[in-house]
């Protein structure tokens, strides 16, 4: 009891004259608190952006991994003028500016129209052209030739860019079939009609290549492939609902 009274009596005294170390501690704690809040806030922003879509492209959260060989889609799939990394125009041996060669996506991603995986071309595909095409000074091409033209043409260890979690099954084939089906009088939402029109051949069929941008963005103009669409469940189910595609959980999860 006595000690309790004593503390009660002493209370105002401590408030009046704080010891020196407490005075130092208060600003330290206050600053520390601000710091902790800032760090927590930063972490939360990461998690929230990651939840809703693509994480911010900093601190290794990039959606565009550096590939073992700097393979440019611009040079192969695009047909625009090419530029070097420093912004200068890319010239061929005769001093003419190079343009992309506009290959069809299915030239390399061959299985995209009939199976679940699109497939990455084997190194043999690359060296059929690059045995001769491209300067001998080019660093990525030298690397490509050592891998592809040696005695034992090894695979290139490409880094995966688009990857759904293990519990999701994605199939390319029905999507390409659906997006290229011009005769589909059904509701067509999320389809790039202008691209379809541009890709329509004289016989009425549509090039598979024009549909890729629905989920992959404009790959043709990317020197390093990046994931631009979030490809979260919301996006998938949204489009499935609008187009009367199956939305049963076992469509994508099994």
């Amino acid at each position: 009891m006595a000690s309790g009274e004593k503390t009660l009596n002493e209370q105002p005294q401590t408030d009046n004259g704080r010891p020196a170390w407490v005075k130092v501690l208060i600003p330290v704690l206050a600053l520390g608190g601000v710091g902790v809040t800032a760090v927590l806030g930063f972490v939360m922003v990461f998690f929230i952006t990651a939840w809703f879509g693509n994480p911010l492209p900093v601190l290794g959260f990039d959606q565009s991994p550096v590939q073992p060989i700097a393979f440019p889609h611009t040079a192969h799939a695009g047909s625009e003028l090419l530029f070097n990394d420093d912004g200068s125009a890319k010239m061929d041996a005769e001093g003419k500016q190079l343009t992309g060669i506009g290959l069809d996506c299915t030239f390399c991603h061959r299985t995209v129209t009939d199976t679940n995986v699109a497939g990455i071309p084997p190194v043999e595909t690359c060296v059929t052209c690059h045995r001769v095409i491209g300067s001998t000074q080019s660093e990525p091409l030298t690397l490509l030739r050592t891998i592809g033209l040696g005695d034992d043409p090894g695979p290139i260890q490409w880094k995966r860019v688009h990857r759904l979690p293990d519990h999701v099954r994605f199939v390319h084939e029905p999507h390409i079939r659906f997006l290229t089906d011009v005769g589909n009088t059904h509701v067509i939402a999320n389809r790039d009609e202008a691209a379809i029109l541009a890709g329509t051949q004289s016989d009425g069929s549509v090039l598979a290549a024009v549909t890729c941008s629905t989920c992959h963005g404009d790959i043709k103009s990317q020197t390093q492939v990046a994931q631009v669409e979030p490809l979260k469940m919301g996006q998938c189910v949204d489009c499935h609902r609008k187009n009367d595609a199956p939305t049963d959980c076992t469509t994508c999860h099994f």
């Binding site: 659906f178 009088t185 499935h240 595609a245 199956p246």
Partner: peptide, 10 residues
């Protein structure tokens, strides 16, 4: 026309 959802659930 049979929609994709109907085709699966039939």
């Amino acid at each position: 026309m049979v929609t994709a959802a109907e085709r699966v659930s039939s």
